[in-house]
Amino acid sequence: MTPSAERDGGGGGEPLLAARAVTKRFGGLTALSEVSLTVQVGEIVGLIGPNGAGKTTLFNCFTGLYHPSAGTVHLEGRPLAGLKPHAVAALGLARTFQNIRLFANMSVLENVMVGRHVRTRAGVLGAVLRGPRTRAEERSIRERSLDLLDGVGLGGRADQLARHLPYGDQRRLEIARALATEPKLLALDEPAAGMNHTETAALKGLLETIRGRGVTLLLIEHDVRLMMDLCDRVAVLDYGRKIADGPPEQVQRDPAVIEAYLGAGAA
């Protein structure tokens, strides 16, 4: 498994993300078994599968929270092996969390401003002296963050504590915070969980806008209709293995997928 080995997956050109035979074991339990997945620049790729199929584990392997027991992950051809999450984020892969992990006692605006950390420089000396460069940087951090908040529809809530936001807003704040790191690839773990139809529809619009700005998207989601409407390609995990990968219509008809979801005989 070398970075220059042949590349599979949809479309031509170098993939933005290339996972090859990723295996993750926890003690005796194999959570992921030789999962390969590629994401091309500009795509929206969905990752579905029953609970416990290993979707979040795969996300964790991509973002440096876990290190794969075997296999490789490359972002723009660069290996992510051994990189810590902050380094992965610096390379351009940002994520949200299934069980929302905001900085609860910071303001909505501050949450997004934290996302700018990785693209800015001011250190202790800059903070204390606050020269023209630091001031300019602070200003740009604020403006950029406020823009991002406007973008996800939270512009009016910038000064509230993150913990006081309603659930759907918290999910969108996580997206704004992740976008603040200027990701090339944004990995969303169940962004529509707990949202109603209206909110989900708005979310779909938001995700399309984000893609329109040149950010590639990889998302885990249980809302099948959203996935079918939104994704260019869908990969299906079951018991830690990839059982299907292709355009939504094709995956929807795949007997292996139907069986995994509905159990044998339901097809």
């Binding site: 999450p85 902050h86 992990r101 401003m113 934290v114 001011a122 250190g123």
Partner: peptide, 25 residues
């Protein structure tokens, strides 16, 4: 009230999320 101060607060609030947002915790 600086970039570093916000990073400290982020670590205090949720270290995993802070790290995932690119902070070298």
């Amino acid at each position: 009230h600086s970039r570093i101060g916000r990073a400290w607060a982020a670590i205090r609030e949720d270290e995993v999320a802070a790290e995932a947002m690119g902070i070298h915790t």
